[in-house]
């Protein structure tokens, strides 16, 4: 399966690296059940055929991102905000002033279902 993902019409420098990380004939990293578990976590309904298809595709993507495992990052701080490399940026703070003007009707106009100022959903079970 993984070999299929690596069939490229044109090559790019990334591909050589990707090839090294993906020996041929490795079993698929994701099975349809894994996809169903992830899909539940992400609240996306998937049917059987879709799960199988996504399992193949995500296995290919996993092969790509698994290249990261080969990088030695000991003593490297994660970079969450790009400009942290050059400037220490910190969160700006807002003054505590309330702005009461809220156009509820404009907000509710986009709702799939609304009543009495509320967004309606199928019954929530606690």
């Amino acid at each position: 399966m993984r070999g299929e993902i690596l069939t490229f019409r044109r090559s790019a420098p990334g591909i050589a690296l990707a090839r090294r990380a993906l020996p041929p004939n490795v079993p698929m990293a994701f099975q349809p059940d894994d996809i169903r578990r992830l899909a539940r976590l992400a609240r996306i309904a998937v049917d059987g055929g879709e799960a199988a298809h996504l399992a193949r595709e995500l296995s290919g993507i996993l092969g790509l991102i698994d290249q990261l495992q080969a990088v030695n990052t000991a003593h490297v701080e994660p970079l969450a905000h790009p400009l942290d490399v050059v400037m220490a940026s910190t969160q700006r703070l807002r003054d505590d002033r309330a702005e009461p003007a809220i156009d509820r009707e404009a907000h509710l106009a986009n709702a799939p279902q609304a009543e009495g100022g509320l967004f309606l959903v199928p019954r929530v079970l606690e």
């Binding site: 009495g116 967004f119 309606l120 199928p122 929530v124």
Partner: peptide
């Protein structure tokens, strides 16, 4: 908050944010 009482429709909850 999810509200379950006082709604005209059955089987629904109202969301107040």
């Amino acid at each position: 908050k999810s509200l379950h009482e006082g709604l005209d429709r059955p089987g629904v909850s109202g969301i107040d944010l």
